[in-house]
Simulated assay, not measured.
Amino acid sequence: MGQHKWAEQAPDEDFFRILGPDGSLVGDAPDLDDPTLLRMYRALVQTRAYETHTIRMQRRGELSVTAQSMYEEAVGLGAAAALREGDWCFPSYRQFAAHLYWGVPMDRTLAVLRGGAPEMVAEH
């Protein structure tokens, strides 16, 4: 039985890329209509407000565990927005923006942080 050694390799350049290493646009920007952009923006703003609130709750002893995605909110949101009908995803507690984008009510997500409502897995 031979041993397998993991080796990191540079990815092929055939993946979808719209930003270069310096953040400049190198491809075509995604074609997003105004309602979609507004939905994404609202999810980001609501995520920041929700996480600020849950941190306060934790400091008051009302939550035992919470985690922030501050300054990384767009990661979960972008992943959620890229999914197609029928795709499955199991977001963690740091992807609240994805939950909002999919329409999961805030009180259900908060219930999970408080130890209830385990049925947070959603099909997109």
Rank of each mutant, 00 (worst) to 15 (best):
A74L: 07
W102R: 08
Y101E: 01
S24C: 01
H53T: 02
L37T: 01
A79S: 04
G86F: 10
T54C: 07
M106L: 12
C89S: 09
F16V: 11
A80V: 03
D28N: 07
G76K: 01
A80T: 01
Q95K: 09
D107M: 11
Q68I: 10
A49H: 10
F96A: 02
Y50F: 15
W6R: 12
Y71F: 11
R56S: 06
P91N: 09
V26C: 08
H4I: 15
E73D: 10
R17V: 09
A97K: 00
P35V: 03
Y93Q: 04
R48M: 04
P91Y: 15
Y71D: 14
L100P: 01
H4S: 14
A79H: 11
L44N: 03
R59G: 10
A122D: 00
R48W: 02
L19F: 15
P91M: 10
V104Q: 02
R48F: 05
S64G: 08
M1F: 13
Y101S: 00
V26N: 02
E62L: 12
A80S: 08
P11G: 00
G78S: 12
A82G: 05
R17L: 13
G78N: 09
M1Y: 13
Y41P: 05
Q3G: 10
E51N: 11
G78K: 11
H53Y: 14
L63T: 07
Q9K: 08
D33A: 10
Y71L: 06
E73L: 01
D22L: 11
G86V: 02
P105M: 03
P105T: 07
R114L: 08
K5M: 10
D31A: 15
D87T: 06
A74H: 11
A29R: 09
Y50V: 02
K5C: 11
R42K: 11
R60K: 14
V26S: 04
M106T: 06
P91C: 06
M120R: 13
I18K: 06
V112T: 05
R84P: 00
T52F: 02
T47C: 09
L100I: 09
V45M: 14
A10C: 02
M106K: 14
A117Q: 14
Q3I: 14
A79K: 02
C89P: 00
A111C: 10
H53Q: 05
L32T: 03
F90P: 00
S92E: 04
V75N: 12
Q3S: 15
A98H: 12
V26A: 03
E123A: 14
A80L: 05
Y50I: 00
R94Y: 07
P105K: 04
R114D: 02
K5D: 05
F15M: 09
P118A: 11
A43T: 00
A49V: 12
A81V: 06
D14I: 00
S64D: 13
Q9S: 13
H99G: 07
P35A: 08
G86C: 07
Y41A: 12
W88D: 14
T47K: 08
V45E: 11
E51K: 04
A49M: 10
L25K: 08
W102Q: 04
